[in-house]
Amino acid sequence: ENVVSAPMPGKVLRVLVRVGDRVRVGQGLLVLEAMKMENEIPSPRDGVVKRILVKEGEIDDTGQPLIELG
């Protein structure tokens, strides 16, 4: 899985990584606010952040691509 998608609709509060960062499975990639709760979205695998497809403050839909890993 190279693309991390939104598991729920919500607002992107914080992006915790930058392009080029090495990430490990379970590491937080970004924080979504949904139903007044903050949810940290973890990396599904080890890899390198290739692209960040959303910006802080954006509203996303379920299934929307958020981050691409390489």
Rank of each mutant, 00 (worst) to 15 (best):
E1T: 14
E1M: 13
E1D: 13
E1S: 13
E1C: 15
N2Y: 15
N2F: 15
V3R: 06
V3F: 14
V4Q: 03
V4Y: 02
S5E: 09
A6G: 04
P7G: 09
M8R: 08
K11E: 04
L13V: 12
L13I: 13
R14Y: 03
R14D: 07
R14S: 06
V15T: 03
L16E: 03
V17E: 02
V17I: 07
R18N: 12
R22H: 14
R22F: 14
V25A: 14
G26P: 00
G26Y: 06
G26V: 04
Q27G: 04
Q27E: 08
Q27I: 06
Q27M: 07
Q27L: 05
G28S: 12
G28V: 15
G28Y: 07
G28T: 15
L29I: 08
L30D: 01
L30W: 00
L30A: 05
V31M: 04
V31C: 05
L32Q: 04
L32K: 01
E33A: 07
K36Y: 13
K36F: 13
K36D: 15
M37C: 11
M37N: 09
E40A: 08
E40H: 09
E40R: 07
I41C: 06
P42N: 10
P42L: 14
S43Q: 00
P44Y: 04
P44I: 05
R45K: 11
G47Y: 00
G47L: 04
V48R: 07
V49A: 01
I52N: 00
I52D: 01
L53M: 12
L53V: 05
V54T: 10
V54M: 06
K55D: 09
K55T: 13
E56Y: 09
G57W: 06
E58I: 11
E58R: 10
D60Y: 15
D60M: 15
D60T: 15
D61G: 11
D61L: 13
T62D: 08
G63K: 07
Q64K: 11
Q64P: 04
P65G: 09
P65L: 07
P65Y: 06
L66E: 01
L66A: 03
I67Y: 02
E68Y: 10
E68C: 11
E68R: 04
G70L: 13
G70S: 13
